[in-house]
């Protein structure tokens, strides 16, 4: 009576899938509740990850702009060129960029974002010429050498001030570390929540279908045939929950963009970043795996049944 091996495999897979979706249909409220619980856990993780990503981006922008800025007194063009060349020749300096007052004013207006008009009204004289210095990684990461260079440049007669951004870097780095730690922590927490919630849901399903499982075994179902629908049920539930969480996150980001997107340049962060599609895919797969693990854990009891 059994079909050909290929047909058997396809039909069994179809029956298993129907059994899994049937399990969800037979207890819709339980599955809805656990899916929403999972979605809330995943959303908190995804939101924290997004915040951490934006903090990192902010730091990258600051670090990427320059590691050191030399503000100059009123200086002739010739002196400015000489100083630029001299700095560029220093070991450990990768690139030097002269920012003239007009460019400084434009940059300021751009950084003000929605309030850019305010910057445009200020006179050029309010913006001293400056030189942005981009250091090699070796020098940028070495506080002592960086400060030595700063002290050396401060002694040049045409230099008004040297900004090394230490406070900003430290604060932003601390925030970034905190954001990264929080996102990892919440990620682990979300995975644990997912595993526990899916395990509890599947366990309830197993208990409700204990008789069905017994009958399936009686009529010759293999353990794989008995267990796989529950695994699929857990995986589907967690993946859907992650999908809901990411959809909610996108809606939240749209709202955040509308409210604070205009003033983000003030913080030097440019536009608000969202999670990339590879990350979204990774998170859906991660949710699916957490669901499978949760379901697998709950199925240990089946061995005793």
């Amino acid at each position: 009576m059994e079909a050909k091996p290929t047909g058997q495999f396809i039909y069994r897979a179809a029956h298993i899938l129907l059994r899994a979706t049937g399990g969800i249909r037979r207890r819709p409220w339980l599955h809805l509740l656990s899916t929403l619980t999972l979605a809330a856990a995943f959303l908190s993780f995804a939101a924290t990850l997004t915040v951490a990503r934006n903090l990192n981006h902010l730091i990258d922008r600051w670090v990427g702009n320059s590691e050191m800025t030399v503000y100059l007194k009123d200086t002739s063009t010739a002196d400015l060129e000489r100083l630029r060349n001299a700095i560029a020749a220093i070991d450990g300096v990768e690139r030097v960029e002269v920012i003239r007052p007009s460019a400084a004013r434009q940059n300021f207006a751009r950084d003000l974002g929605a309030f850019g008009d305010l910057g445009a009204t200020l006179p050029e004289a309010a913006f001293p010429a400056s030189i942005d210095i981009h250091l090699s990684r070796r020098l940028a990461d070495n506080d002592r050498e960086r400060h030595a260079l700063s002290a050396r440049l401060s002694k040049v007669h045409m230099v008004e001030e040297v900004e090394v951004y230490d406070d900003w870097f430290k604060r932003l780095s601390a925030m970034s570390t905190m954001g990264r730690t929080a996102s990892w922590g919440l990620g682990i927490l979300a995975a644990i929540v997912a595993i526990l919630v899916v395990a509890a849901t599947v366990r309830t399903g197993v208990a409700a279908r204990r008789k069905e499982i017994a009958v399936l075994r009686l009529v010759g179902a293999t353990e794989t045939y008995v267990r796989t629908p529950f695994l699929i049920e857990g995986g589907i539930e967690a993946a859907i929950a992650m999908g809901i969480a990411l959809f909610c996150l996108q809606q939240m980001m749209n709202h955040v963009d509308a409210v604070v997107g205009g003033i983000m340049p003030l913080l030097g962060g440019g536009r608000i970043l969202r999670l990339e599609s590879t990350w979204l895919l990774f998170m859906v797969v991660g949710g699916l795996l957490a669901g499978l693990v949760g379901a697998r854990l709950s199925l240990r009891r089946l061995e005793e049944a």
């Binding site: 009576m1 059994e2 058997q8 069994r12 179809a14 009686l218 009529v219 010759g220």
Partner: peptide
């Protein structure tokens, strides 16, 4: 009897056929 009380008669009988890997129409 060992029937699943909340399933239909057809679904109960179908259990012993599903495991054979035969088509839904069969």
């Amino acid at each position: 009897f060992h029937l699943i009380g909340d399933l239909t008669v057809g679904a109960n009988i179908g259990l012993s056929l599903e495991v054979l890997g035969v088509s839904p129409s069969f």
